[in-house]
Design a protein around this nucleic acid. Structure first.
Lengths: 217, 217
DNA sequence: GTTAGTTTAAAACACCTGTTTTAAACATAG
DNA sequence: CTATGTTTAAAACAGGTGTTTTAAACTAAC
């Protein structure tokens, strides 16, 4: 194997980042868990930032690619029902399936994904956010563009905010599922995987997307 | 003034915490912005954790109090419509008004509130979460209990998850509004205050709460 | 076998973190 | 005045952080 070291670093970093976040995870704990020399991170990835980008790119690439493909085939399909909710569910299902597709090969990727978006938006001046929009903004906007057709009764501004409400629901649910499971502790229990959460969210997002706008009537 | 120092610390801490989060904000920047000696934080609050709790308690107390009162008067009101969505909107409106009530006296409190919940749930083993549930769990559960009545067509487990989907939508939207405004940068623009976001979210949360559960039919 | 790239070990760097300590000055109530 | 609590200044502590460096060992290809 030519790059066993880099892969071990990426794997360990992904687990730690997903569990404790980017800031709270030190390079030393990553290299220790990966059983790799401390200097290896800076040797291969330049810096911790570089490692974070590498970790995210590893699944964000396939994710956006899969998403774009699925959206393309959807757009080419002829029949479009008059039922907006039905079409919205199809679209959110495509998003969910794309997430599940990358989660298949990479168990912690969804948690990292959620954490990434969460922190990218949480810090007001986010270099992460710029990297995301620059690298994967196309797929992002493509999805938004198609979604827009089935949320016609609102202005662009209202759509913008509504979209991010949905994004927040998705991101928070995925990134804090561990804590939620820790809370119920067997009461409501029944472990719910990120895949299940995503599938569960589809109709909720569809309904939320169609909710009327108050203060208009 | 007897406690001008502690108040200045709390004010400065609130602004910094809201803007950069708890971990990314150092005690030194707080004391500098508050124009207070570095040791003052540990003198008055014992530790940084104590300061965080003090900052959150300052608005979480009035918030839970206001919420509990409003819920109480709601429960006492006789007429209850058969329209679940209408009642749900009333309930979420109560929540929104309670938030706006504390935000009135304290402009950054909502951002801190959102960030608090977000970080409390993000770290898997959260001492913050325990403090929250121990201190304000009553109001929390009270709200959930009333809400439960108007979301009858689901199991307790489904309700638990659905509730946290809504919570996530709320928390993410409030805590990342700055980043969202930075994105659109005048395109969709029109500054939207946290109060407006909360009000905007009421019908969305009501719809999301009522969304059907897939895989049952 | 030489060369180039990789990996390791260990140490050090420079910096930031929360916290503590010492001393002196200030405030205010008994 | 005295005593108690507050505030400041400045320094230091102990520990963690990302990063760099040095040297030696290893691996593979030409």
């Amino acid at each position: 194997m030519t790059h066993a070291t880099t892969d071990r670093i990426l794997d360990a970093a992904e687990v730690e980042f997903a569990a404790h976040g980017f800031v709270e995870t030190s390079v030393r704990t990553i290299t220790t868990k990966a059983k790799v020399n401390l200097a290896a991170v800076n040797y291969h990835f330049g810096s911790k930032k570089g490692l974070i980008q590498a970790v995210t790119d590893r699944f964000l690439g396939p994710l956006s690619q899969h998403l774009q493909m699925q959206l393309n085939t959807y757009e080419r399909s002829a029949h479009r029902s008059q039922n907006n909710e039905h079409e919205l569910r199809i679209l959110f299902n495509i998003l969910a399936q794309s997430c599940q597709y990358v989660a298949q090969h990479n168990h912690h990727s969804l948690a990292v994904f959620a954490r990434l978006i969460n922190t990218a938006y949480s810090q007001s001046q986010g270099h992460l956010r710029k990297h995301l929009t620059k690298q994967y903004g196309a797929s992002f906007l493509y999805f938004m563009k198609i979604l827009r057709q089935f949320m016609p009764v609102m202005t662009n501004e209202q759509f913008f905010w509504r979209f991010h409400y949905l994004l927040g629901m998705l991101v928070f649910s995925l990134s804090s599922s561990e804590a939620l499971l820790a809370i119920c502790e067997g009461e409501y229990a029944s472990h719910r995987s990120l895949d299940q959460i995503m599938a569960d969210l589809v109709p909720v997002m569809a309904s939320a997307a169609q909710a009327p706008i108050l203060g208009e009537s």
